[in-house]
C-alpha cells in the first residue's frame, strides 16, 4: 500500500531551510498551495499567512476559489518576507508547493524553483471534472501517469504523503489538509507551538483536537521519511495505463444548427475551435482536441457531437 514515500534528499540542513534562506536574501518566501474545491486549500493558506504575519513578515495571499467550487482547481499563493510586492508567484519561483491532490500537484510543478523547490503532495486522487488536466483521448487513463519516483527526479525535494488516509485513520478525513500543514511546518522555521496556535484559529472548535493530532502526524511523518530509504512505489492508487491512447477524436458538426454564439470557441480548454468565414464553428486544430466534450455539452444548439473512435490496435489486421 502507499506507505509514506521518502524524499530523495535525506538530509536537510538548517541552512537550507527556505525561510532562513529567503530572509537572508531579502527575497520573499513563496508558498503555493493547490488542490480542488472542498479540500481546504484556503484554510492551509490562511493558517500560514496568519502565522507569517504574526512573526512580523509582510504577507500577501492571493487565491482563486470562486471559479472552481467542488471539484475544480483551487489555488492560493502565499508570499511573505521583509517586503513583498507582487501577490502572485511567477512560474519557477515557488519555494514550496503544497498540493492537496496528486494531479493538481503535478499541474503546478512548473511553479517550483527547479533546483531548490520543495514539493509536498497528498497522494489523494480526485479524478477531475470534465475540464481538468484530464484531456487527451482515453483521458482518465492518463491521470497522473507519473509515479512519485518520476516526479522526484524533477524536483529538489518531494514528499508524497497519503495524507487523506492518515486523516481518515485519525477519524476525520477532512483533516488531510492539516496533515499537510504538519509536513509544511517542517520546511519552514516557525516553532511548532505557533503553528498549532495559528491552526486552532482556522478549524472548527469541535475539531481542534483531531486537527492538532493531524498536524503532529504530518510533522512526524516527514521526520520519519527523511530517514527512510525509498520503497517500492505503491501501484494500488494508480489507474491502469495502456501503452497508448486507444481512441482518436472526431468532431461531427451540424453546420445548419450552429448559430455562431461562440460559446464552444471560448470555452474549449484547448482553444482549438474557431468560427469560419461564414461564422460557423469548425475544428481549427484537430491535433489539439482532446475529446473533452465541453463544446458538445455547452452548445445550446446541439451542433457538435464528439466521437471518440477506437483506434485499431497496432499490428491488428485492418
Amino acid at each position: 500500500m502507499s506507505r509514506p514515500n521518502a524524499s530523495n534528499s535525506s538530509a536537510v540542513s538548517e541552512e537550507l531551510r527556505p525561510t532562513a534562506a529567503a530572509a537572508k536574501a531579502r527575497e520573499p518566501m513563496n508558498v503555493l498551495i493547490v488542490g480542488v474545491g472542498g479540500q481546504g486549500v484556503i484554510m492551509v493558506s490562511k493558517a500560514l499567512a496568519s502565522l507569517a504575519q504574526s512573526k512580523g513578515f509582510e504577507v500577501k495571499q492571493s487565491e482563486v476559489h470562486g471559479m472552481a467550487k467542488r471539484g475544480g482547481t483551487v489555488f492560493s499563493h502565499v508570499r511573505f518576507g521583509p517586503q513583498v510586492w507582487s501577490p502572485t508567484i511567477p512560474k519557477g519561483e515557488a519555494d514550496i508547493l503544497v498540493a492537496l491532490e496528486w494531479a493538481e500537484g503535478l499541474r503546478w510543478l512548473a511553479y517550483l524553483k527547479p533546483d531548490s523547490g520543495i514539493f509536498i503532495c497528498d497522494t489523494k486522487r480526485i479524478v477531475p471534472p470534465f475540464a481538468c488536466l484530464n484531456r487527451r483521448p482515453g483521458a482518465p487513463l492518463r491521470y497522473s501517469r507519473e509515479t512519485p519516483a518520476e516526479v522526484r527526479e524533477h524536483v529538489a525535494q518531494a514528499y508524497a504523503i497519503d495524507a487523506t488516509r492518515m486523516a481518515e485513520e485519525l477519524g476525520n478525513e477532512r483533516a488531510a489538509n492539516v496533515v499537510l500543514i504538519g509536513a509544511l511546518s517542517t520546511a519552514l522555521d516557525f516553532p511548532a507551538e505557533d503553528w498549532e496556535k495559528s491552526l486552532a484559529q482556522f478549524v472548527p472548535k469541535k475539531t481542534i483536537a483531531v486537527n492538532l493530532d493531524a498536524f503532529r502526524l504530518g510533522r512526524s511523518w516527514i521526520a520519519e521519511a527523511r530517514t527512510r530509504v525509498i520503497e517500492a512505489e505503491a501501484p494500488a492508487t494508480r489507474i491502469p495505463v495502456p501503452a497508448e491512447s486507444p481512441y482518436s477524436v472526431r468532431l461531427e458538426i451540424t453546420q445548419e444548427w450552429c448559430k455562431s454564439c461562440d460559446i464552444c470557441v471560448k470555452l474549449c480548454p484547448e482553444r482549438c475551435l474557431r468560427l469560419n468565414a461564414e461564422r460557423i464553428v469548425e475544428l481549427a486544430q484537430p491535433d489539439k482536441c482532446t475529446g473533452c466534450r465541453l463544446c458538445e455539452l455547452l452548445c445550446p444548439d446541439f451542433a457538435i457531437r464528439v466521437h471518440l473512435d477506437r483506434v485499431a490496435a497496432r499490428g491488428a489486421p485492418a
Binding site: 448559430k259 455562431s260 455539452l297 455547452l298 445550446p300 444548439d301 446541439f302
Partner: peptide, 12 residues
C-alpha cells in the same frame, strides 16, 4: 434548428 437566440442557456 430550434428557435432560441444564439447562446441561449435554455438549449443547454
Amino acid at each position: 434548428p430550434h428557435f432560441l437566440c444564439p447562446g441561449c442557456g435554455h438549449g443547454i
